[in-house]
Amino acid sequence: MVLKKGEKKKVLEHKRKLVTKNDPKSPISEQYRTIRTNIQFSSVDEEIRTIMVTSSGPGEGKSTTTANLAVVFAQQGKRVLLVDADLRKPTVHYTFNIMNTSGLTSVLTNQMTLMESVKAIDMKNLFILPSGPIPPNPSELLGSKAMDYFMNAALEEFDIILFDTPPVLAVTDAQILSNKCQGTILVAGSGKAEKEQLVKTKELLEAAKGKLLGVVLNNKKMKESQHYYYYGVN
């Protein structure tokens, strides 16, 4: 795969954010494992297997959170599928340095099967489904019957399915998908997310009948250290 200069920069930036894979013993990685545990204990009656990760607005760290959660679930021995459901500004293929010529949109439009589109990476138990070609109708695709068939097919092959979605206040895509997933994680950037935006996001997800599992406070500097960020579930 030959990358242009700007694309190479994006790949390097995203690889640096994959801390749970590159530095699994770091304090940040431990926080991601705490989030994983909290997710697993969030429902007594059923095992949470389909999880959507979103944010109120852009730049709050939802894609970084999704990727690292996928890694820690895979490290636990779960067979994990990370799906880039941001069909407008996809980034997962940069994070894992894979091609995005085919992916979710290819499956939803019946051009390829799920397992033909899934990409294996250099990590046991973790599989990636990039967005694929950006479609003209992202919301319609995510809300289609084809998406329901996709979910059923994916659940037969994988233990955990994580969806990286667009910000809730930007477009309706995340609301549509929250209705199809068992749980939603909301990422809030410290010093970036405003209370009114978070309240509005919560209301929109609840109106879509989405189940909010918790909130991850992202990029909050700890007092005892200036060298790492804290990630937690509230």
Rank of each mutant, 00 (worst) to 15 (best):
T65L: 05
Q182S: 11
L155S: 08
T91F: 00
N100G: 11
L162C: 03
Q226I: 12
M222G: 14
N218Y: 01
R36S: 01
T172C: 09
I185G: 00
K180H: 10
I134L: 12
V92T: 09
T172H: 08
A154L: 09
L141W: 02
V72T: 12
I128F: 02
L142K: 02
R36A: 00
M147I: 10
A153V: 11
S117N: 08
A67H: 01
V199N: 12
T20W: 00
L217V: 12
K223N: 15
Q75P: 03
P166E: 08
M147S: 06
T64M: 10
A193D: 06
K209G: 08
L87E: 04
L213I: 07
T109L: 14
S29H: 04
G191Q: 08
V80H: 00
Q182R: 09
P27I: 06
Y149C: 12
M52D: 02
K89T: 13
V11G: 05
V215L: 14
E224Y: 13
M151E: 08
A67I: 01
K21W: 04
A207W: 11
A74T: 02
L205V: 10
N110F: 11
G61P: 10
Q226M: 13
A207M: 15
V44D: 15
Q111A: 09
A193F: 03
K9P: 04
K145I: 12
I160C: 04
L213Y: 01
T105W: 02
R16I: 07
D122N: 15
S63G: 11
K195V: 13
A174M: 06
E116V: 10
R49T: 10
G77W: 03
V72G: 01
M112G: 04
T201H: 03
V11H: 08
G61E: 05
F127W: 05
K21I: 02
F150M: 07
L198C: 15
H14Q: 15
Q76Y: 09
T101M: 11
E13L: 12
V215R: 04
Y231C: 08
S56I: 07
S43I: 06
G191I: 06
I28S: 09
L87S: 04
K9A: 12
M147D: 05
S26I: 06
P133D: 07
T113D: 14
K10M: 14
A208M: 09
G189A: 09
V72K: 02
Q31F: 09
T113Y: 09
L12Y: 10
M147V: 08
K9N: 13
K4C: 13
V92W: 01
G189F: 01
T95G: 03
A67R: 00
D173K: 05
P135H: 06
A85I: 07
A170P: 01
T64W: 01
S63C: 10
N97S: 14
E7V: 10
R88T: 09
N219V: 05
I51T: 00
R79N: 12
S102D: 11
S190T: 14
I98T: 15
G214T: 01
K17Y: 11
T64C: 09
Y149D: 15
V2D: 15
G189Y: 03
Q40T: 04
L162I: 07
I48W: 04
K9W: 11
N219D: 10
L204K: 11
G214S: 03
T37K: 04
E116S: 12
T184Y: 02
Y149W: 14
I51F: 00
Q40C: 04
K124T: 10
